[in-house]
């Protein structure tokens, strides 16, 4: 038996990979399949799942409501569609802002003196590894009515002799956007840096020798060669923003609902796991579709590993 195993390379590989494969099957594949099955189910009055095959949850998500006020059998309720669109827009805006903030910084670090480069990178890693919840809390403190931002604006206004009423910054869509940008900025800086660092300096010299202006060099050499980093960063930012619920929960208030909040509430407050599962699958399909078309257009860089 042992001797046969020693000679059978394929069996050795299977044996080595088996614990991980079983673990991932039970805790990833099986849960996803279960989510799919339950999404076709119904909610029982006491919040349990009734296993059937009905498309009701998906129909409800698409805006066809059966709870109509004027006695009609169905009517259009855009609530859930609005939530989906809001999440998509927020993920898109966050990604765009994060790219514009991360690129100059990544460029600066990549061009910095190699001796100092690690220190600058280290300075990106500290906020990255500071706990997600703590970072939301930090913004909660800054954005409060009595927080630092209002304090600074108030002081400046006071100097200028302008009457200043503290702004309501917390519990607004803007607060959620700032929070998301803050949470995911480091995930964009690292991959862009990795791809910028790989560019050979001789390419810049060649472009300059051929008479390209620095701006043109940037546009024709640097930017295209750093695209794999931008693509990887986008995947690392877009996907989690789509599913995050803490930022909107803490900084957006009860009224500001994203897909993540919708799903979480179905499981913990509303007790409708079937509907929550359907929403979760829609979320997964949305992110997979966006990621698929995006990576097909721009290619898939190995930079994703670097982060």
């Amino acid at each position: 038996m042992l001797k046969r195993l020693r000679e059978n390379k394929s069996a050795q590989g299977t044996l080595l990979a088996l614990p991980t494969t079983i673990w991932m099957f039970i805790l990833l594949i099986l849960p996803l399949l279960l989510t799919l099955v339950i999404s076709f189910g119904k909610r029982s009055p006491d919040g349990e799942v009734i296993f059937t095959f009905s498309l009701d949850n998906y129909i409800r998500l698409m805006g066809i409501s059966s709870n109509c006020q004027n006695g009609q059998s169905w009517c259009f309720d855009s609530l859930y569609l609005q939530i989906l669109v809001r999440s998509l827009m927020l993920a898109f805006n966050t990604t765009v802002i994060v790219i514009t903030m991360a690129y100059p910084l990544a460029y600066f670090i990549a061009r910095a003196d190699p001796k100092r480069r690690n220190t600058f990178l280290f300075m990106v890693l500290i906020p990255l590894w500071t706990n997600f919840v703590i970072r939301v809390y930090a913004w909660m403190m800054l954005l409060r009515k009595e927080g630092a931002i209002n304090l600074i604006i108030g002081t400046v206004a006071h100097w200028l002799g302008i009457n200043f009423v503290p702004l309501e910054l917390l519990y607004t869509p803007g607060a959620v956007l700032v929070g998301m940008v803050y949470e995911f900025l480091p995930f964009m800086i690292l991959p862009i840096f990795t791809s910028l660092e790989k560019i050979e300096t001789s390419l810049y010299e060649a472009a300059a020798d051929l008479g390209a202006s620095p701006f043109k060099t940037f546009l024709r050499v640097t930017l295209p060669l750093s695209m794999p980093g931008v693509v990887a960063g986008t995947i690392l930012v877009f996907i989690p923003v789509m599913g995050t619920f803490i930022v909107s929960d803490i900084l957006g208030g009860r009224q500001y609902i994203l897909v993540g909040n919708l799903i979480q509430r179905q499981f913990l407050d509303a007790r409708d796991p079937a509907f929550g599962s359907a929403a979760s699958l829609i979320l997964m399909v949305m992110t997979l579709v966006v990621t698929y078309f995006y990576t097909r257009k721009f290619g898939f860089g190995e930079e994703i590993v670097a982060a």
């Binding site: 849960p31 989510t35 339950i38 789509m242 599913g243 499981f267 599962s277 979760s280 979320l283």
Partner: peptide, 12 residues
């Protein structure tokens, strides 16, 4: 998204 895995495991 992590939440998809999270609620899947919760359901399981």
């Amino acid at each position: 998204p992590e939440i998809v895995m999270g609620i899947g495991i919760l359901t399981l």
